[in-house]
Amino acid sequence: TYVQALFDFDPQEDGELGFRRGDFIHVMDNSDPNWWKGACHGQTGMFPRNYVTPVN
């Protein structure tokens, strides 16, 4: 499953995934309602669910 970033996200903690608005992120785990795990630009980490939108 892929999502697209609605906003820039700069990691604040180790293990978070940084990205820029418009980036596509491969979702690896969406079991938590607020923080998902994904991959983008060769990196993996957690990111806030409300920063992304589903891609059809």
Score class of each variant (00 low, 15 high):
2 Y>H: 07
2 Y>I: 15
2 Y>G: 05
2 Y>M: 14
2 Y>K: 10
3 V>K: 03
3 V>M: 08
3 V>E: 02
3 V>H: 07
5 A>D: 02
5 A>M: 01
5 A>P: 01
5 A>H: 00
6 L>W: 03
6 L>R: 09
6 L>Q: 11
7 F>M: 12
7 F>G: 07
7 F>N: 07
8 D>W: 01
8 D>H: 05
8 D>S: 07
9 F>W: 09
9 F>K: 06
9 F>C: 05
9 F>D: 01
10 D>Y: 11
10 D>R: 11
10 D>M: 13
11 P>C: 05
12 Q>G: 06
12 Q>E: 10
13 E>H: 12
13 E>W: 07
14 D>C: 14
14 D>Y: 05
14 D>H: 09
15 G>I: 10
15 G>H: 12
16 E>Y: 14
16 E>A: 09
16 E>S: 09
18 G>F: 04
18 G>S: 14
18 G>C: 10
19 F>V: 02
21 R>K: 15
21 R>Y: 05
23 D>Y: 03
23 D>R: 01
24 F>Q: 15
24 F>L: 14
24 F>S: 08
24 F>D: 04
25 I>R: 00
25 I>H: 01
26 H>Q: 15
26 H>K: 12
27 V>Q: 02
27 V>R: 00
27 V>W: 01
27 V>I: 10
28 M>T: 14
29 D>S: 06
29 D>C: 07
29 D>E: 12
30 N>H: 09
30 N>P: 09
31 S>N: 09
31 S>E: 10
32 D>V: 02
32 D>C: 07
33 P>A: 11
33 P>W: 06
33 P>K: 08
35 W>E: 06
38 G>P: 00
38 G>F: 00
39 A>D: 12
40 C>M: 10
41 H>G: 11
42 G>F: 03
43 Q>E: 15
43 Q>P: 00
43 Q>S: 13
44 T>S: 08
44 T>D: 06
44 T>R: 06
44 T>V: 14
46 M>H: 11
46 M>W: 11
46 M>V: 14
48 P>A: 04
48 P>R: 10
49 R>M: 09
49 R>P: 12
50 N>L: 08
51 Y>S: 10
52 V>T: 07
52 V>F: 01
54 P>N: 14
55 V>I: 09
56 N>P: 06
56 N>L: 08
56 N>C: 11
